[in-house]
């Protein structure tokens, strides 16, 4: 049995370490983050193009180099677009942090194992091989809490893997009409 961090405390650490970054959520993070944060620069990418939250966040980072962007992704989503690790580095964006929540399963479809789980894929090694200057993994809550702020301050783009516990009874509800959310988000971006 591998070590893991309960999902909500893992996210609470990030919430508490956050400054004024844009935060893009999807899947499991989109379910939990709105319960922890109601920041105007939160963008919940639901419904999404599967596996593409890091790319939407990269577009924001390129559009707004004056702001830091944090992108959440699941490990299953990550597998759907692994090439995005290369695209992120190649873009030259340094104001970017990708946080992958690894639980080894596709929660949304009922908890089936990912191929990466069977193959014991090392996502941090993949990120380093793609050229991320900063890449770290955490499977202990105290360690994550102690090092979150310094990890977010490392040279970007940054890759953070959080090994998190699986969540039973997955349910993802819409945070509201997309058009209204986009309008509010763009207003917040313009004002900040």
């Amino acid at each position: 049995m591998r070590d893991s961090i309960p999902l909500i405390p893992a996210l609470e650490v990030l919430r508490d370490s956050r400054c004024e970054q844009i935060v893009v959520t999807t899947m499991g993070s989109a379910r939990e983050w709105p319960r922890l944060s109601q920041h105007p620069l939160d963008f919940h990418y639901i419904p999404s193009a599967m596996g593409h939250a890091p790319m939407l966040a990269l577009g924001l980072a390129l559009a707004r180099p004056d702001r830091e962007v944090i992108a959440f992704n699941g490990d299953g989503c990550m597998l759907m677009s692994l090439g995005c690790l290369v695209t992120i580095v190649a873009s030259g964006a340094t104001n970017y942090t990708l946080v992958v929540l690894e639980n080894g399963v596709y929660e949304v479809t009922g908890g089936q194992s990912t191929a990466a789980s069977a193959a014991r894929v090392d996502f941090v090694a993949l990120a380093r091989a793609a050229g991320f200057p900063s890449a770290a993994a955490f499977d202990d809550l105290d360690q994550w809490r102690a090092r979150a702020a310094e990890t977010l301050a490392l040279p970007g783009p940054r890759f953070i893997l959080l090994r998190v516990a699986r969540v039973a009874d997955y349910e993802l509800t819409s945070p509201g009409p997309m058009g209204e959310r986009i309008k509010k988000f763009r207003q917040a971006l313009a004002e900040k």
């Binding site: 193009a49 593409h52 939407l56 990269l58 577009g59 390129l62 695209t87 190649a90 763009r186």
Partner: peptide, 24 residues
Amino acid sequence: LTLVRVCREGEAWTIAAGLHLGGQ
């Protein structure tokens, strides 16, 4: 113009979406 290279075309649409949301 800034050129953004992608590895697969789906990335292009979602990067463009982020750029558009960011005012580009």
